[in-house]
Design a protein around this nucleic acid. Structure first.
Length: 94
DNA sequence: CCTATGACGCCGG
DNA sequence: GCCGGCGCCATAG
C-alpha cells in the first residue's frame, strides 16, 4: 500500500498490523517468494531512514535505484528528507 | 530444551 | 543524540 515516492518503516508496519515485532516485517519481506513482484519491499526502510535491507536485492544497488526512479533521493544509503517522505500505514489511499 | 541470530526499535543513562 | 540493554518472535543448529 505504500505509495510511490514515499517510504515506510519496519516499526510502523509492525505497529499498524499489530505484529508484535518489527523483526517480523523483515522476516516477511525475506519470505515473499512469488509475491516479490507485487510487494514494494524497496519502500521499507528502518526508523532512521536507512536502507538496511539493501543487501537482499540483486544487485544490492537495485533498492536505491528503484527508489530513485520513484523520485526519492538516496544519499549514502539514507533517504533524503526522511521525515517528510515517511508514510504511516492507513486504510487506503488513492 | 537452549542459545544465537537477525531487512528492528524503544527506553534509560 | 549516541549507546548499551532488552523486548520482540521465527529459525537454525
Amino acid at each position: 500500500m505504500i505509495p510511490k515516492g514515499r517510504v515506510s518503516t519496519y516499526g510502523a508496519i509492525s505497529d499498524f498490523l499489530s505484529l508484535g515485532s518489527a523483526r517480523m516485517v523483515g522476516w516477511a519481506l525475506n519470505n515473499l517468494g512469488n509475491q516479490r513482484e507485487v510487494v514494494p519491499a524497496h519502500r521499507v526502510v528502518n526508523r532512521k531512514g536507512e536502507l538496511s535491507g539493501r543487501m537482499f536485492f540483486h544487485p544490492p544497488e537495485l533498492m536505491s535505484e528503484l527508489l530513485k526512479s520513484e523520485g526519492i533521493v538516496v544519499i549514502d544509503h539514507h533517504v533524503l528528507d526522511f521525515e517528510n517522505v515517511f508514510w504511516y500505514p492507513r486504510q487506503l489511499e488513492y
